[in-house]
Amino acid sequence: MAKVEVKELLEAGVHFGHLTRKWNPNMAPYIYMERNGIHVINLYKTVAKLDEANEALKKIAASGRKILFVATKKQAKDIVAEKVANVNMPYITERWPGGMLTNFVTIRKAVKKMASIDRMKKDGTFNTLSKKERLQVDRLRAKLEKNLGSISEMTRLPGALFIVDTMREHIAVKEAQKLNIPIFAMVDTNCDPRDIDFVIPSNDDASKSIAIIMGQVTDAVAEGLSERKAEKQVDPEEGKGKKREKITQEAPKVASSKIESAPKAKKIEEAPVVAEAPAVKDDTKPTKVAEEKKVAAEKAVESKMTKSDDFTKIEGIGPKAAEAIINAGIKSFAELSKAKADEIKEILTEASSRMAHLDPTSWPKQAKMAAKGKWDELKEWQDNAKGGVE
């Protein structure tokens, strides 16, 4: 991914902010100067923040989570739809449906309704309806396609949100904050950057400015997806390598058993000589081996402790909540399945007052399914549950 230069951003008009009388004082660190009653954005800070956001988006895409792009303003609609469609990510360009994240189960039902209409058309039941009913169903299908067609493949809450103009999409910001979903955004001089996790100070009104930022962001996402694809292709080869190692380890054992069984008479004669050998030498060898084994075991335990399961796969757990749980010493799905909901609630409230509203009642149950590798069952449960609650 080629890094964008300040000159390119300058040519695209990314530095133009809003009128000085409309500014938000919290944007002061990102403003370079004021010229003719308009604030000018510091593009060096834009480049630095864009690189930081791209790295984070790349990691989220490589982990397999979806990134939801939101841009309902006229200038951004077509640009976002075109760029995001290339990386196969969900996007909202018509209007933000209230409860899109906080009431995700209801939104999923609307998407399933769209799929059921398609099935009706395939199996012939659609033709059995009257002309008026067919028209009504077609209108409903067109309305659902317009508002929710781009998120039809998003079966669970997204791993992150990317927003163009946070003032216009303030409802999306609030919903993401409530669920602790990280927010990436193009933030102009009239917006509040305190609500955003990854701020990209830039002009969110000009189409050229939106196009260049979206181009960089989608390139980072595409890079993350290609890394994930490469890892998946490597994994089967690693599995074959492990099998080969097992075969080679077993082969010497067979050979040694044949050698031992051959010279029986000699071994009986040599037995007393081995018995007369000093006991000190024989004792020292096993102790060294035992020590090496202990060290290896301790290293294995340490490596297991440092690695932790991805708790964000559980409905209701965002990145910040997952971090709080891991910091509390719970690092695997098996450990989380044994934890009590009250204990988890205490951990979250101690970590941050913003997480006090979270309901961890179903988390141990979901963790139990995840620990056993029942991902299809977990996904089905999450689709039927309402915000992670039965």
Score class of each variant (00 low, 15 high):
66 K>T: 09
17 G>E: 05
45 K>W: 12
60 I>K: 10
40 V>S: 12
70 V>A: 00
29 P>L: 08
45 K>T: 07
73 K>T: 03
34 E>R: 11
38 I>R: 13
31 I>K: 05
27 M>C: 08
74 K>N: 08
36 N>S: 15
22 K>W: 09
82 E>G: 03
45 K>L: 14
83 K>I: 01
23 W>P: 02
79 I>P: 00
45 K>V: 03
48 A>Y: 09
20 T>G: 08
84 V>F: 00
34 E>I: 13
68 L>Y: 06
17 G>A: 06
40 V>C: 15
39 H>D: 14
70 V>L: 00
64 G>R: 13
81 A>L: 03
74 K>E: 09
19 L>Q: 13
71 A>N: 04
24 N>M: 05
44 Y>P: 00
23 W>I: 06
54 N>M: 14
55 E>T: 07
36 N>L: 15
59 K>A: 15
39 H>V: 09
22 K>H: 11
40 V>M: 15
30 Y>G: 04
49 K>G: 04
33 M>R: 14
81 A>C: 05
75 Q>G: 05
27 M>S: 10
29 P>G: 07
43 L>F: 15
36 N>T: 10
77 K>T: 02
81 A>P: 04
70 V>M: 00
56 A>R: 12
37 G>L: 13
21 R>K: 10
49 K>P: 00
61 A>F: 05
58 K>T: 05
72 T>I: 09
37 G>P: 07
26 N>I: 01
27 M>W: 07
48 A>P: 01
59 K>I: 09
55 E>Q: 13
67 I>M: 03
18 H>W: 07
24 N>T: 05
22 K>R: 11
63 S>F: 03
61 A>D: 09
21 R>T: 10
31 I>D: 12
59 K>C: 09
39 H>R: 13
80 V>E: 01
68 L>Q: 04
68 L>A: 08
60 I>C: 08
24 N>E: 13
80 V>I: 11
21 R>M: 14
44 Y>T: 14
83 K>T: 00
25 P>I: 06
56 A>P: 04
43 L>V: 07
32 Y>G: 14
41 I>Y: 09
56 A>F: 09
36 N>H: 14
70 V>Y: 01
30 Y>I: 05
69 F>I: 02
59 K>D: 14
28 A>Q: 12
30 Y>M: 06
79 I>G: 00
18 H>N: 15
33 M>F: 14
81 A>S: 14
35 R>P: 07
69 F>W: 03
18 H>F: 07
43 L>R: 06
35 R>K: 11
43 L>C: 11
41 I>R: 03
22 K>C: 08
30 Y>Q: 06
21 R>S: 09
81 A>Y: 00
